[in-house]
Nucleic acid binder design. Structure first.
Lengths: 231, 231
DNA sequence: TACCATATTATGGCCTACCAAGATTATGCA
DNA sequence: TGCATAATCTTGGTAGGCCATAATATGGTA
């Protein structure tokens, strides 16, 4: 009661994540950073030992990652780290294009200068990270750029979908941003999105966002084919 | 060995779903058909008793449904059936529009008459179901229509996303298809999609698909506001 | 030696029982 | 009546065990 009367503005953000959430993050992270490789078996009892938690937790975590698409469950064999093929990667980029394009269009139609300003800030962070060869930073700030795109027009569900799909192509992302010229081309393409938004040009923003994803997809396909992109 | 030598053509499709999958389907179905209403608490031990399975299973099922967005987990209170507000429903329809529009465009660009034929067949099923006042059939065949749209161009990931989002607005779907004139308007709009695909008109197919979802969304908003649509 | 049938092991699916901690409700006393 | 304390409910988490199946090792026989 008294608490409610005082509002919840300064409520401390409970760091009290459950053990399950902690374990989930750990395992997801382990898959994303390559500690577990695609195709690796994820033996429940081994994970219990490695994580120091009970099987209950491990099983829930595996189920969760399964629904995220990071883990596949072979019948009568058990869970393995999911493998992504060319085609699926392409489909994921395509979906991102559709949704990010949609969000970009909505941002442009909002005619709110604060949006473009916020995006510019993320873009600046990305450029700095490229300059410092901080590739983890590039990824993080790129995510932040897109999160801004979605959250500025209150599309948190679409952002959730994009985010969910993005983790599955995480390793591709880290490879595409390292390819030749991407440090220049990437930001240039993203700046086009911001420009269109600032102009209030919905269709232009849509096209620019689509094009950015399309070029990332092309690079990813090249990487997956084992050859470097022609550029 | 001998089995493999004979191929796998007649392999029996394992009905051997795990207990967990069975329970998952049961609970999901119970939520979708309204046995559990939005906001209802889902007490683990009660579910154990009702389903006749252990807490292990129930917990995994609840986690899974949580990641599907059908169940929400209140900290220190436990899981409840997720409630969908206006805005989220609108967002989901919007995403469906973007993805179904994308799929429709791809179908049109395929220039394969078989696609339009297959869609026409689903459309016929929908009309028949409407005629017989078989609303469950309408929903099923509508899903089948869209599944065709995605699977004909091998976009199973996008279909998965649409499917995932669709269960969350299931109750809205059953209400929208029952509104006045929807039995005529719905099929007419879908026929426009098929026509555009048959003509190879990608942009037209995209627009038609978007429009179909948009009108469903508008009806849903009206239903959510408590009033019937003006039509 | 080659081969087949039988243990053994590894592992997932599933269960019961238990404890701790937080929230809620009941209870009893001043 | 009002407040503090106790009982209860429920989830988070643990431990350990049972069973079924698949893969692997083992050993005996032709």
């Amino acid at each position: 009661m008294t608490d409610d009367a005082h509002g919840t503005a300064i409520r401390v953000e409970r760091p009290a994540k459950t053990l399950r959430e902690l374990a989930l993050d750990k395992v997801r992270e382990a898959i994303l950073n390559g500690y577990f490789r695609p195709g690796d078996r994820l033996v429940e009892r081994d994970l219990c030992a490695q994580l120091g938690v009970s099987r209950t937790i491990v099983r829930e975590v595996l189920r969760h990652l399964e629904s995220e698409g990071l883990v596949a469950n072979l019948p009568n064999k058990g869970p393995i780290v999911a493998q992504l093929n060319h085609d699926e990667a392409k489909q994921i980029y395509e979906i991102r294009g559709a949704l990010e394009g949609m969000a970009a269009r909505l941002c442009a139609e909002q005619r709110n200068p604060a949006i473009a300003d916020a995006l510019d800030k993320s873009l600046e962070d990305i450029r700095n990270s490229y300059r410092d060869k901080d590739m983890a930073g590039v990824l993080a700030h790129t995510s932040s750029f897109y999160q801004t795109l979605f959250s500025m027009v209150d599309r948190h569900i679409a952002w959730g979908v994009v985010n969910l799909l993005t983790v599955r192509i995480n390793h591709l992302r880290s490879m595409t941003i390292k390819t030749q010229n991407r440090d220049v081309q990437g930001p240039v393409q993203m700046a086009r999105i911001v420009d269109a938004i600032r102009r209030g040009d919905g269709e232009g923003a849509y096209q620019a966002a689509m094009q950015h994803v399309a070029s990332a997809s092309a690079i990813a396909q090249a990487v997956l084919s084992g050859r470097q992109p022609i550029d």
